[in-house]
Simulated assay, not measured.
Amino acid sequence: MMNDYSTIKKLQQRIACNNDMKAYEGLYKLLFPSLFRFSYSFVKSHEAAEEIVSDAFIKLWQQAQQLSEIDNIKAWLFTLIRNLSINHVNRNSRHIYYTIDDFAFYSSITWQHPEDIFISGEAVRKINQAVNSLPPKCRLIFQLVKLEGLTYQETADVLGLSLPTVRNQVVIGMKKLLQSLPAFQLAVPLCRDEE
């Protein structure tokens, strides 16, 4: 995950300093799957989710000069996607307004480098199933922290929640996952220290 962070940071700087279109395309390709799944969890439409992610990247390109001021572009994009997605849902519903608690986020663990992972397809299926069985809010928080690599504070900011809520939901999620996946009960810490 640290490698992804440094890659994202380098691409961000190339876009901010040089208006580098190749870096922009690289950032898009790297982050699109996660951002698409996140948006889809709100809008429940492939077309709308694709459009929302594209709109977010257009906004990113339009603000290229200010990108160097953004500490974590991934968290910034997740926040933008959340806002655009909720606005889309609210605009297209008939006077029913939704909050973050009304949406379900279905995760899918994917591996960037399968040769580096020694885990069977059946184990991945069981892990995905266990993550998807978490309550919606817990699943969303777990996805952002554990699978997308956002810090607790970034996740709290993206979702408009308090830091203790995020920490508690991660602990609840880890406990439920460890209970539903007894074969995977390794020495996994329930929470991590945040800076």
Rank of each mutant, 00 (worst) to 15 (best):
Y152S: 05
F36L: 11
D116C: 10
A16H: 12
K176Y: 01
Y5V: 11
R94G: 00
T155N: 01
R14I: 02
G26Q: 10
R192L: 12
I117E: 12
K176D: 09
V170T: 08
K59P: 00
K59I: 06
F184V: 02
S68G: 10
K29F: 06
I117F: 10
Q179S: 10
Q179G: 01
V158M: 07
I52Y: 01
Y28D: 01
I96R: 14
F142H: 10
S162N: 08
E195C: 04
I73K: 09
V43Y: 04
C17D: 15
L27Y: 05
Y98E: 02
L60S: 05
E195F: 06
V89D: 03
N3V: 12
K175E: 13
M21Y: 12
A123P: 00
F38W: 15
H88G: 00
E195L: 10
K44C: 11
H88Q: 09
A156L: 05
F78W: 11
L67A: 09
Q169K: 15
L67C: 05
V170R: 07
L159C: 08
E194R: 12
I81L: 05
L11A: 06
V43L: 06
S68Y: 13
C138H: 10
E154M: 09
S93V: 04
Q12E: 12
G173N: 07
L60G: 04
V53P: 03
P182I: 06
T110M: 07
L67G: 05
Y152K: 06
D116E: 15
I86K: 06
F32G: 00
L144Q: 05
N92M: 07
L11M: 14
T79K: 15
W111E: 13
A23I: 05
S34H: 11
L181Y: 05
I70Q: 07
F118S: 14
F36Q: 07
Y98H: 14
L30A: 08
L190M: 12
K137A: 12
E195R: 14
N87C: 02
Q185G: 02
W61P: 01
L134T: 04
L27T: 03
Q65Y: 09
N128H: 09
K146A: 09
I81M: 04
T7V: 09
Q66R: 15
F78H: 14
N128T: 08
I141H: 01
I127M: 12
A16N: 10
P164K: 13
K74V: 00
L161P: 01
F36M: 08
N3P: 00
D55C: 07
N128P: 03
H113T: 13
Q66C: 03
S120A: 08
K59H: 09
S180Q: 15
V145L: 06
Y5K: 15
K74M: 05
V158L: 08
T151L: 07
L140F: 01
N92Q: 11
L77C: 04
F142S: 04
T110S: 12
A56W: 01
E148M: 02
W61E: 02
Q12P: 02
L177D: 07
D193T: 13
W111F: 15
K44F: 11
W111A: 12
E148P: 01
V145D: 00
V124G: 00
I58P: 00
E194K: 12
S34R: 15
K10F: 05
L67E: 07
V158A: 06
A123H: 10
W111T: 11
Q63H: 14
F32V: 03
Q63F: 02
L134Q: 06
Y40V: 04
A104D: 13
M174G: 02
K29N: 13
I58E: 13
